[in-house]
Computed example of a mutant assay.
Amino acid sequence: MKVNFLKPWAYLAVFAVVLGSCTESVDEEPVLELTQEVAEPSYEQALGVWQELDQEAGNPFGLRLAGNFNYFEISRNQLFFIPGEGYQGGPAPGFYPGTGTGSATRMGRSNSFLNQFAFFEGQELVTVGAPVSAVFGEELAALGIENVPDEVSSLTVDKKGNSIWFKNVKNTVTPVSETLSSFIAEVEIVGGTGRFARLRGTGIVRGNFNPTNGEGRSVTMANLKNGK
């Protein structure tokens, strides 16, 4: 995905989260307390979050939802930073893994894991999906989730180990202010474990986050179907 920074302060904001995140331990385990029962999100709830995110960010993408969806996911997220090879400061090169807690269709309470890699192409900052298992392999194995393909850059799981796997197709991030960036992503569902093992589909993820501390929230809407 290409990150279209609109003003110079956007680089300063991303740099702030790099400096702050580097002081965090990248080995810190995410919260995996999935015993509390949570109702599945409805279309109305997911749409409501979508509209809240749009309003908060000033509707930077000017998009309207179209089509029918049968999978919904609402999550609060925390991003971290892991410097990449040759890192000398700034927002890249480096990995931006993260975790999330929320609710999802056919899961109820859920946790999510994600990973992406940021680098410069000339003066343009670009991010692409990175293997989620490269950072969270041990956590996933503890949940009984193994052999996750490298194309899977994010994953959502419930307390029984049912998981749904997402492949990043295209993602655009737009800075709104020093403390708010907005993103929209196209994803493919490429399988999972348990009840999601044979499912395939496409979806869209809409979210906002604070680039100074990595905190954010997102909503996912997708169409799923049984695959081979």
Rank of each mutant, 00 (worst) to 15 (best):
G214D: 07
F166Q: 07
E139V: 13
Q45R: 11
V18F: 00
K159P: 00
L12I: 08
R206D: 04
N111E: 12
S103E: 14
G201C: 04
G86C: 08
D150E: 14
F183Y: 14
N171W: 12
L125P: 00
A16G: 13
G201I: 04
F166R: 10
A118F: 10
G191P: 01
L140Y: 06
G108A: 07
F119Y: 15
M221Y: 06
L199A: 09
N70W: 06
L79F: 14
R206K: 14
E44I: 11
T172V: 15
L32W: 05
F136A: 00
V205A: 03
G67T: 04
P30I: 09
F81W: 06
S110I: 10
L19P: 02
T220F: 06
F81V: 04
F61S: 06
E139G: 08
P8N: 06
P175F: 00
F183N: 08
F119Q: 11
A39C: 10
A130S: 08
F119P: 05
A134W: 05
Y43E: 15
A222P: 06
G62H: 04
S110E: 11
G102S: 04
L79G: 09
E37K: 12
E85N: 15
L19I: 12
G129N: 00
A57Q: 02
S110K: 10
R106D: 12
P8C: 05
A39W: 07
D158A: 01
G122Y: 03
G94R: 01
P60M: 07
S182W: 02
E73L: 10
N59C: 06
A197N: 10
E28C: 05
Y71S: 04
C22L: 14
T101N: 15
T127S: 13
F95R: 06
N68Q: 14
A57G: 08
A185D: 08
S153R: 00
N111S: 15
G137Q: 03
V128F: 03
N210Y: 00
G94N: 01
K7C: 08
I184C: 03
F72H: 04
K170Q: 14
L6K: 14
N168M: 15
V14S: 06
A10M: 03
I164L: 13
P91I: 11
K170W: 09
F209N: 03
L155N: 02
S110P: 01
G108Y: 05
G203D: 05
F5K: 12
V176Q: 08
V169K: 09
A46S: 11
G86W: 11
T172M: 12
V26Q: 12
L6F: 12
K160N: 14
F196W: 00
I204K: 08
G144M: 05
E178C: 06
L155F: 02
N68L: 13
R106C: 03
Q78M: 10
K225L: 12
N70E: 05
W50I: 06
N70S: 09
A222V: 02
V157E: 01
T202A: 12
V49E: 13
G48D: 11
E178G: 10
E188C: 04
S218W: 01
F119G: 02
E40I: 02
Y87M: 07
R198C: 11
E24D: 15
T179L: 09
V190F: 03
K7L: 13
E52D: 15
G216L: 02
N226R: 13
N210I: 03
V126I: 13
L12R: 09
